[in-house]
Structures are given as C-alpha cells and as structure tokens.
C-alpha cells in the first residue's frame, strides 16, 4: 500500500512506557491494560504529570484554525470531474499510484494543456487548409501569367519610361535615327 520504508526518524527506538501512556490517553489499550495503567497513574505523581502534559499538548491543537477551501472549490472540482471518464485497472494501483503529477499538473493545469493542444490543432488545420487551397488555385494564377499577349511585353518592359512621356508622337520622333545626327553628315 504505502511505502514500506519508514524515514530515519521513525526508526529511532521509542520509549515503551510513553507508548503505553499515549495509547492509554487515546483509548487504545485493552481494558485490563488500561485498568493497570490507571492504577499506576494514581500511585505515581511523575507518571501522572507526564500524562497530563501529553494530554494538554494534545488538547491545545484544538486552537488550530481549520483551513477552509475557497468558495469556488466544490464547483471547480465537480466541473473538472464531469469530463473525466471512468478508468480501468486494479484498485491497488489507484490507491498507491504516485502523486508526482499532483502538483506538477493539477486538474486546472490539465485544462490549460487541453486548451493549448486544441489551439495547436486549430492552427495546424488552418495551415493545411491554406496549403491545399494554394495548391488548388496556384495553377490558374500561373496560367494567367502565361496568357499575357506577347505584343504587350515590350510595353510592360518600358512602362517606367513611358510614364515620363505624355505624347506618343514625340516619343516616335525621339526614336528617329536622324534626330541626333551630325548636320555635316546630313
């Protein structure tokens, strides 16, 4: 069940007389043993003082305030559980299962992990969707480029120059080979 190795402090020998006294105060002794100890207590003031100090120490623990769960604890807990399916496995493994995850991944944290997982899956799905949509439409786009009339290609190539000229006739004159010829030659 629980670990069988007691801590070093638990291995130290304890005083049998104190054990009996504590068990007596806890009502854990058999009736004959309890009666015998009660007689000794009546006769031994030192033993009686020891019993009283142990009992008073025990009683003083009642002063400890009982820590209360937060107001939302029950509702949070129940809502967490309602999404949990029943598990398989044996009972011993349930009882003795390590709790290393208890602090590292509380139920609340687990719901956070689910959120991130869902977010990741959504983003991944969107990415795949975009990729396939691109694959579906990209050929048409390439085709559109190919369908540009060949006679327009020079125009497109010199578009930047054409923008600086208002008049096409003037441009044609500039293109004349005689415009900048030496007058002597002409």
């Amino acid at each position: 069940m629980a670990d069988s190795k007691p801590p070093a402090d638990d291995k130290a020998p304890s005083d049998p007389a104190t054990e009996e006294l504590v068990a007596y105060l806890d009502g854990e002794l058999s009736p004959p043993d309890a009666e015998s100890l009660a007689t000794r207590l009546g006769l031994d003031p030192k033993l009686r003082a020891q019993a009283e100090s142990l009992q008073r120490t025990w009683d003083i623990l009642d002063i400890l305030p009982q820590p209360q769960p937060s107001a939302s604890f029950a509702s949070r807990t129940v809502s967490q559980m309602l999404v949990v399916p029943a598990a398989g496995g044996n009972v011993q493994s349930i009882l003795a299962a390590p709790a290393n995850s208890a602090l590292a991944a509380s139920p609340v944290q687990r719901s956070g992990a689910s959120f991130w997982l869902a977010s990741f899956l959504t983003i991944a799905a969107a990415g795949f969707g975009g990729y396939f949509a691109h694959q579906a439409y990209a050929p048409a786009a390439k085709l559109a480029v190919m369908e540009v009339p060949t006679e327009d290609v020079p125009l497109m190539k010199n578009l930047r120059l054409y923008r600086n000229v208002d008049d096409m006739e003037y441009l044609k004159q500039l293109d004349s080979p005689m415009l900048f010829a030496d007058p002597a030659e002409s």
Binding site: F73, Q80, M81, A99, S106, P107
Partner: peptide, 10 residues
C-alpha cells in the same frame, strides 16, 4: 486545493 482536487479526481 490542488492536492484535494486530485484526490477527488481519482
């Protein structure tokens, strides 16, 4: 509370 919730979960 985390530990208590884990107990109820189990």
């Amino acid at each position: 509370e985390d530990l208590a919730q884990e107990v109820f979960l189990r």
